[in-house]
């Protein structure tokens, strides 16, 4: 059965902000670069039209800060970096993600919908 893009979007909806905070915790950058990084890491199809508003939301919630950085190709530009609150949120959201996916993988495995080895492999150590 072909993958349903709408379903994938639904699954990503609750995890994308965590992914963006994780990427930003590695290196402050701008919204377009986050789109590129997501794609490089396998999250294809997440467009700028999704990422840019989401960054606005994270900024509004105080989870990311903006700072100006020199740009090699033009005038200085704003980049996002994770704030102190953002680091706390990233820890919490990562824990929630691991707990949730572990529980769901266990449920799927116990119900026979997921190969038990696959489930074990999916559970982060």
């Amino acid at each position: 059965m072909a993958a349903d893009p709408d379903r994938r979007t639904q699954l990503l909806r609750g995890a994308l902000d965590t992914c963006l905070l994780a990427l930003l915790s590695q290196r402050p950058t701008h919204a377009y670069d986050l789109v590129v990084q997501l794609e490089r890491r396998g999250l294809t199809g997440v467009g700028y039209g999704t990422v840019y508003p989401l960054m606005g939301r994270l900024r509004r919630l105080g989870l990311v800060d903006e700072r100006t950085e020199p740009s090699p190709s033009g005038p200085p530009r704003k980049v996002f970096e994770v704030s102190t609150r953002g680091h706390c949120a990233l820890q919490e959201w990562t824990r929630q993600w691991v707990d949730t996916t572990t529980t769901i993988s266990g449920l799927l495995a116990s119900a026979g919908a997921l190969d038990s080895q696959e489930a074990t492999a999916d559970v982060p150590s």
């Binding site: 700028y48 840019y52 606005g56 939301r57 509004r60």
Partner: peptide, 17 residues
């Protein structure tokens, strides 16, 4: 990047921010 519907992009960007 902005997509075919700039109105939608603008609304979402403004609301989210």
């Amino acid at each position: 990047l902005i997509g075919p519907d700039p109105d939608s992009f603008a609304r979402e960007a403004a609301a989210a921010s």
